[in-house]
Write a protein that binds this DNA or RNA. Structure first.
Lengths: 238, 238
DNA sequence: AGATTGAATATGTATGGACATATTAAAAAT
DNA sequence: ATTTTTAATATGTCCATACATATTCAATCT
C-alpha cells in the first residue's frame, strides 16, 4: 500500500500499478496523460513522468510520443535472478565453505569453450566446492590467457577463480545459461551422486569490451539445488 | 560507446560505466559529487542525478546521503530472465504449436501445491505442449478455485491455462524457481524420453494482493532446453 | 485515390532553483 | 575520555518552465 511518507512519484506509481493489478486498467487500455494526472495529484508533470517512466521500464506500460501511454500486454515478463558467488551461497546457509583444485592445465580450448573464448591459450581448471564437506558444486572453467595473462601465475589456493576474477576485472559483462544434464560417471563420483542423476547447470561467459575473459560451467546436484527468480516490482513496494 | 545524439544524462551514465568497466574506478572508490560532474558536463545537477541514480538502480554504485557515491563491490550481480509463454517460445523457433489436456480434475491440493495455494479447492490440470508434434513441455498446474472460480467452467481447448490466466488476471505477481530433476517413468513416456533423463524444471507461483492464484510445474527435456539470462546494462547501451 | 505537406499533441529531456533528509564530522558539554 | 549537540554536506525530491521529437491526424496537392 501507499505510505503517507512516500514521495509523490512513488505514490503515483504504486496507485497506477494497483489499478493495473486489480484489473481496472487492462492491457491495451490508455492511461491518462501526464498533465491530467499532474492536476489530479496537484504536482508537476516531471513528477508524474518519473512515475510512469519507471512503470514503463519495468514493462507494465508502453509509451509512445503523441500516441500516449497504454497498459502493456501481459505475459513474458522479465524477472530478476541473482547468481551468487559459491562461497556466499554456502556461507549464507550457515555451512562451512571449502574448495579444491582438481585439475590445472594450459590448453587450446575447443568445443563450446573454444567458441566462447576464441583464443589459442587458456588456463583450464576443474574445481569442487564443498558445503560442510559435502560436494556442492563442480566447476569447469577456462580463463583466456590472452586477455587475462596474470591468471597463468595465480595459485588459486586461497581465493577461488571466480573471486579472483571478480577482483581482477570487477564489472565485466556476463551472459548466463541454465540447463539440466545427466551426470556422467566422473561427475557423479566427484559430486557423490549416482551416474545419470540430474544436474542443474549454470554456464557463464564473461567479456570486457568485446574481449572474452572466461567461460565456466557450474554443475549442481539437481536434487537439492533451486534457483529463485524475484519479481521486478515486488507487490507494490517499488 | 557514446553517441553524439545521446541525451546528456545517458552520456554521463555511459562514460561513468566505462570508467568502472575499465577499472579506472574500482569497487569502493568514490565518484565525484553531482555538482562537480554537473560543472564538468556544463549541465544541471538533476541531469547528473538521473545518470547516477540509474547506475545505482542497476547495482554499479551505492549512494548514501552526505557520504557520497561509491563503486559497489562486484560479485553476485543481478541478471534478467524472461520466462516466455510456451506458444511464443515455440512459434519463435518457427515451429508449429499444439497442446493437449491430458488430465483435468478438481482436487484438494497437498504437498508443494497445497503449500503454494493454501486452498481447499483447486483445478488440477496436466498438459503437454508440442513443437512440430514433438513433446516440448509437460505442465502440471493447480488453479485456486477460491480466487479464480471461473476456471471451473473454462474448457482450455483453444487457449491453454497459462494464456487464459494471463487474460484473466494479467498483472499478478509471480515467483519462479528453477531446478533439475530426473524424469520418472510417466513423465519420460509423455516427453518421449528415457526414464531418468534430466528435466529442466520451472516452478511458478502467482498471487494477487496476497491471494494465491496458481502453482505450475513446467518440465522440459534437459538435453535441448536452455534458458538465457541477459545482462542488465548490456555493454554500454543503456 | 493516393501521395505530400503541415499542424497538433503526448512524451522526452533539460534547466535552475528550492527545500528535505540522512549521515558525517566537528564542537560543546558532561 | 565519553557522550551529546550542532553544523556541514551530499543525495533525494519537487517545481515551473522551456524546448525537442516522434507520431498521429487533417488538409492540401497531384
Amino acid at each position: 500500500m501507499t505510505t503517507n511518507s512516500d514521495p509523490v512519484y512513488l505514490k503515483i506509481k504504486k496507485e497506477l500499478l494497483q489499478r493495473i493489478r486489480q484489473g481496472e486498467l487492462r492491457p491495451g487500455d490508455k492511461v491518462e496523460h501526464e498533465e491530467i494526472i499532474a492536476q489530479q495529484y496537484d504536482c508537476a508533470r516531471a513528477t508524474v513522468h518519473r512515475a510512469i517512466r519507471e512503470l514503463a521500464e519495468e514493462g507494465y506500460v508502453e509509451r509512445k510520443r503523441r500516441a500516449g501511454t497504454r497498459v502493456a500486454s501481459a505475459g513474458n515478463r522479465a524477472t530478476r535472478v541473482t547468481i551468487p558467488l559459491v562461497r556466499q551461497e554456502i556461507e549464507a546457509r550457515g555451512a562451512k565453505y571449502r574448495f579444491n583444485v582438481l585439475e590445472r592445465e594450459i590448453v587450446t580450448p575447443s568445443g563450446v569453450a573454444g567458441a566462447a573464448l576464441s583464443s589459442d591459450r587458456a588456463l583450464f581448471l576443474r574445481l569442487i566446492h564443498f558445503a560442510n564437506e559435502a560436494p556442492f558444486q563442480l566447476e569447469e572453467r577456462w580463463i583466456n590467457l590472452e586477455t587475462v595473462p596474470q591468471a597463468e601465475h595465480a595459485t588459486f589456493e586461497m581465493t577461488n577463480p571466480n573471486e579472483w576474477l571478480v577482483e581482477t576485472s570487477p564489472y565485466s559483462e556476463a551472459e548466463h545459461f541454465f540447463s539440466a544434464e545427466n551426470a556422467n560417471k566422473a561427475q557423479a563420483k566427484l559430486l557423490e551422486l549416482d551416474e545419470n542423476d540430474a544436474l542443474f547447470v549454470i554456464e557463464r561467459r564473461t567479456h570486457l569490451e568485446g574481449d572474452a575473459i572466461t567461460y565456466a560451467r557450474l554443475l549442481h546436484p539437481g536434487a537439492n539445488y533451486r534457483m529463485t527468480a524475484e519479481n521486478f516490482s515486488f507487490s507494490t513496494k517499488n
